[in-house]
Amino acid sequence: MFQELRASIILVLGLTLLTGVAYPLLMTEAGQALFPYQANGSLVEENGSVIGSEIIAQSFTGDIYFHPRPSASAYDAANSGGSNLAPGSVKFINDVESRVEELRKPGSARLVPVDLVTSSGSGLDPDISEASARFQAPRIAEAREMSLQKVEKLIEEYTARKTLGVLGENRVNVLQINRALDRLSPETLPEMPAP
């Protein structure tokens, strides 16, 4: 038994140093050297300060912006997670119903794409589906006093297609397209009241 303990302790400590200290630290060095942008969290900077991560959703509520999907964790990037509500639960159905009411104009015949009224698994989904982007286009065009075609063209440009035509979904990164909107019509910004 003593021999077993001796071998175990030496091997556990040795392999822990190798896989739990040397490996992650070396990968950090390598990652930082080879792909520094991604290794630091794909952070987007503007005027020298970090405004978010390209691949982490943040809250957009103003009419001039595309809105991300609902988040069960209120876009808290230190507390990820989904609603974990069952598909038949009363709270889930009520949540979805109130989101639909908020998004649809009275009398409109347009259906809301399902991803725009359901919360994501992480609460930090950086994307909306192509359909959800198009659904929001008229609201943004109106708020920014832009032509609908211009917004639609932007959606076209910012839609990432399925990888190899098979993997994933056609989607639009909300942070990227909103920054593009701001670059396109920056004069709209100061006139908008804070949400």
Partner: peptide
């Protein structure tokens, strides 16, 4: 890492979100 998974010893970053608010990104 190439695909976008972070690998850093910085445990979190503060971001000033575009539409207002501060976001702590772990």
């Amino acid at each position: 890492v190439h695909e976008g998974v972070p690998q850093t010893l910085a445990a979190s970053v503060q971001a000033s979100a575009i539409d207002g608010g501060i976001q702590t990104i772990v």
